[in-house]
Design a protein around this nucleic acid. Sequence first.
DNA 1: AATGATATCAGTAATCGTTACTGATTTTTG
DNA 2: CAAAAATCAGTAACGATTACTGATATCATT
Lengths: 133, 133
Amino acid sequence: MSLKYSKQRQAIWDFLKDKDTHPTADDVYLHVRQEYPNISLGTVYRNLILLRDLGQLSTVDIGDGTLRYDPCVEEHDHFVCTKCGTVLDIRTDPCEHTKMIRNTEGIFPGVVTGCRVLYSGICPSCAQNSTDD
Amino acid sequence: MSLKYSKQRQAIWDFLKDKDTHPTADDVYLHVRQEYPNISLGTVYRNLILLRDLGQLSTVDIGDGTLRYDPCVEEHDHFVCTKCGTVLDIRTDPCEHTKMIRNTEGIFPGVVTGCRVLYSGICPSCAQNSTDD
DNA sequence: AATGATATCAGTAATCGTTACTGATTTTTG
DNA sequence: CAAAAATCAGTAACGATTACTGATATCATT
C-alpha cells in the first residue's frame, strides 16, 4: 500500500496500528525514538498528518489541547475519564448517529452531515479502585 | 453578585452575556479594547477563566485549536459549519442526553456522567447562499 | 479621608502543541 | 549509475494560552 518506503513512517504506523489507547503525537515520538533514536518530532507530526490525510488513521480531540491519534477510522464515539484522563472507545449502534442527525435536522434549518459524541465519567479502572478503599 | 469591581471584567461580561455567536478570547479582546484601549489580552483570558470557574459561562471546543466562550451554562449541543466555521447552538430535547448516557452505560462498564455532542454540516446561511447560484 | 490588605491590572515573557522551513540524505525511476 | 523525487533530522516559527512582574485600584477599618 501507500507505505512504500521510509522506515520511520512504518515504525510510526506499526506502533499505532493495534493501539486503542489514543496516543498523542508525543507518545508516538517517545516510543518510536526507542527504535530510531534520532527521529524528529517534526517527522512524527508530518507522518501522522499524512496518514490521516490518506484516511489511514483518525484524530480525536477531547478538548485538553492535545490531539490523540486513533488507528480506527470507522465512526465511533469516545469516553474520557475525568479522573485519570484515559480515552476509551464507545461503539453504540451505528444507526444511533443517523437518528441523532435526522432528529437534529428536524429542529435546525441547516444541513447536518456528521456528529461526534464525547462521553465523560469514571472509567472502569478508576471505578474499581475507588470501591477498593 | 460576584462582579463587585473591575470595569474590565464587567465589560468582558457585558460583551459576552447576550451573545450566541461563541466568540473566541481574541474576539472578546478586540471588542473590549474599543472601550478600554489598553486592556491586556492576559486580562481577558484571566477573567474568562475566572468567570468559567464561577460557573457564569461555559467553554466550547470545536476542535479548531481555539476555545469559544458561551454565556449559556445550561447543557446544550453545538453545530459547526464546515464552510464558514460558524458555531450555532443546538437544543434537542434535554432527556436525549439522559437516554444516550443510559444507553451507553448499558454497553460500557464505567460510570457515565456527561456527554457533549458536536454536529457538523452546512449552516442555514451557507446553505442559502449555495442555492443562489 | 488615611491605612493596610487584597484584587486586579497592563505588559511581557514563557509554555505548549503544532507547523513550516532548511539543506542533507535516501529512495525510486530510467 | 545518474537525475528526480520523496523523506529525513534539526530547528525555527507560530498561535493560543498561561505565568510572572511590579504598579494601580478597590475594599474594610478606623
